[in-house]
């Protein structure tokens, strides 16, 4: 089964993970720009991170036959450092214009502060200017209220639901989203958020339309093979191959394809290929 993981933070993962993902069927991914676990203190740290998302990381992924794309944004947690946030927002348009940048994201709410409102609103406008979809994550705390507020803000700025990908959903937020026309994404985690069994139950209740499943694997406890584990759980539950493929391939291709910047063909890999003169090899020569 061909798999597209539409949310995975590969910067935090090893080449072993890339290899295992490729073995599990992953041939395409989206890596959203996000919080790195500790606050950044200068705009240069963001710029270097964005540069690696459009440069080094696609090179690493390609070594394993995986087409790498990314989303670029100021995340809500760091939006609260308002001086820094202003500087980051200023450089974002350049980075949103790059090849293989397929959405503005992750944006949304963390603590639902006024500073987060401002950053979210400013980035909705940037997405419209750059003609890109948005990847919006729902907050960990007060999730249901945060999801409703997210939808209100998108509607206030006339951002099209079909270009809105709302992530980190659960059994309660999916009820709110089901009739909105937004894409509904689910992060499958080992302990928190949704697991494979609950995901299958949600798909049985709501169907496969506009549904996305991702591993959201990062530097925390997480599993980059979760999408393939959902595939197995769906097979066991009796979903057809077509239905499974809708969720793990067709839907992410349709959602992010709206950017016009998916590049799903990975060029053939030569053993001596490098990225700007550097490689992931450890052998000399």
């Amino acid at each position: 089964m061909r798999i597209f993981d539409p949310h995975v933070h590969m910067t935090s993962r090893t080449t072993d993970d890339y290899e295992a993902m490729a073995d599990s069927g992953v041939t395409a991914i989206v890596e959203p720009a996000f919080w790195l676990g500790q606050p950044r203190t200068s705009v240069g740290s963001f710029v270097d991170y964005f540069a690696s998302l459009v440069g080094w990381e696609p090179y690493r992924a390609a070594q394993f036959g995986i087409a790498h794309h990314c989303t670029i944004a100021l995340n809500p947690k760091e939006a609260n450092d308002t001086g820094l946030a202003r500087e980051v927002l200023e450089v974002l348009p350049r980075w949103l214009a790059k090849d293989r940048v397929v959405a503005v994201g992750e944006v949304g709410y963390d603590s639902m502060t006024p500073a987060e409102d401002d950053a979210f609103s400013a980035q909705i406008a940037l997405a419209a200017d750059a003609d890109l979809p948005m990847l919006v994550h729902t907050p960990h705390r007060d999730k249901l209220a945060g999801t409703r507020r997210t939808l209100d803000v998108l509607a206030e700025q006339d951002f099209p639901p079909e270009r809105s990908i709302i992530d980190h959903n659960n059994e309660l937020t999916v009820e709110v989203l089901a009739d909105t026309g937004c894409w509904m994404a689910f992060s499958i985690y080992p302990d928190t958020k949704v697991d494979e069994r609950r995901m299958v139950a949600i798909l049985q209740e709501y169907g496969t339309e506009r549904m996305l499943v991702n591993s959201a694997a990062d530097w925390g406890r997480s599993d980059p093979l979760k999408v393939s584990k959902v595939v197995a759980a769906m097979q066991e539950a009796g979903f057809s191959d077509d239905d499974i493929s809708t969720v793990v391939w067709d839907n992410p291709v349709a959602a992010y394809g709206q950017s016009g910047r998916l590049e799903l063909d990975v060029p053939g890999q030569e053993a001596d290929s490098t990225f700007e003169g550097s490689s992931i090899r450890r052998t000399s020569g």
Binding site: P93, R94, L96, A97, K98, D99, A130, R261
Partner: peptide, 10 residues
Amino acid sequence: VRVLFPAVSR
């Protein structure tokens, strides 16, 4: 030029 320059290749 800031947003047009990166788009040239595609």
